[in-house]
Nucleic acid binder design. Structure first.
Length: 271
DNA sequence: AAAAGGACCTGGTGGC
DNA sequence: TGCCACCAGGTCCTTT
């Protein structure tokens, strides 16, 4: 479900209400996520307060006094901030209850996400230590993308979805960014020149920033922690628009499978 | 070292 | 209405 803009939208909607809140209880109803919820989680979290909530790629990092709670939402996860007594629904796998009687409720039908704890420096965590650059940080540039792409043959779309290169770019925003940069998704990443990469880096930043400002993309069920949908869907230029006219040239949008992901493009505009 | 494909899950949709 | 195949916003792991 959530790519970087959706995770960032959730982060922003919980950061202020949870800052300084003390954890009163942890309720694990279903520990079988992508990785099992550690059975020590309750003991780790109890009595601690949330000092800050950061994001790294699509991971949410809850900074506590003794370490970090690490949450990934996978394909179908979401987090809601609810009164602690709100009736539980199917797939509400975990609650973190605070002293103010609010709870952060993790819901994830497909269970591709995870809820983990680490008391080590969070950047050293095995799931985080090999991640590439944050696309909205200043060190993410066309030069960087160009340099790492040399000798590579993977299609550019697969390349920008590789989290060891750059984090947070999932299927929706990879398609959108390549359309904005007028680059064909199957073009081998090692055959793109520096100038095109500079354009692509800017396109990725623009698409992600605009999506964050819009509160993310709600295709089916994305919502922020208060239950609000995102408003970026009508701004999508290419994703999910097979057969519809390209907004730039009017020719029908094409679709093909690339690395097991649906890929949309305009064969006229994305030479 | 890089690329390709399978695996992990449930729910919604569309065809018959 | 029911059954079935197929598809979905992610990404790690194994194999080539």
């Amino acid at each position: 479900m959530p790519e970087l803009p959706e995770v960032e939208t959730i982060r922003r909607s919980i950061a202020l209400p949870l800052q300084g809140q003390i954890i009163k209880a942890v309720i694990v109803r279903e520990p079988r996520l992508r990785w099992s919820v550690p059975n020590t989680l309750t003991a780790c979290l109890l009595g601690q307060s949330i000092q800050d909530i950061q994001r790294r790629g699509k991971y949410l990092l809850f900074q506590c006094e003794q370490g970090h709670l690490l949450i990934h939402l996978g394909m179908s996860g979401n987090l809601r901030l609810l009164p602690a007594k709100t009736p539980v629904k199917k797939h509400d796998h975990l609650d973190i209850v605070f002293h103010n009687e609010l709870c952060l409720r993790y819901h994830d039908p497909r269970r591709f996400g995870c809820v983990l704890w680490t008391s080590d420096p969070v950047s050293q965590h095995p799931l985080l230590m090999n991640l590439g650059l944050e696309p909205l940080e200043p060190d993410f540039t066309g030069d960087y993308l160009y340099r790492l792409a040399q000798q590579r043959k993977v299609p550019i779309k697969t390349y920008i979805m590789n989290s060891r290169i750059v984090v947070g770019v999932g299927n929706i925003y990879a398609n959108e960014s390549l359309f904005l940069a007028s680059i064909h998704p199957t073009k081998p990443s090692g055959q793109i020149n520096l100038e095109r990469y500079q354009c692509l880096a800017k396109s990725i930043q623009q698409v992600l920033s605009t999506a964050i400002e819009s509160g993310g993309t709600t295709l089916r069920d994305f919502m922020d922690s208060a239950g609000n949908p995102g408003y970026f869907k009508p701004l999508l230029q290419i994703y999910g628009r097979t057969g519809q006219p390209c907004n730039q040239c009017g020719n029908p949008i094409q679709q093909q499978q690339l690395a097991q992901r649906v890929t949309y493009y305009c064969s006229t505009c994305q030479g």
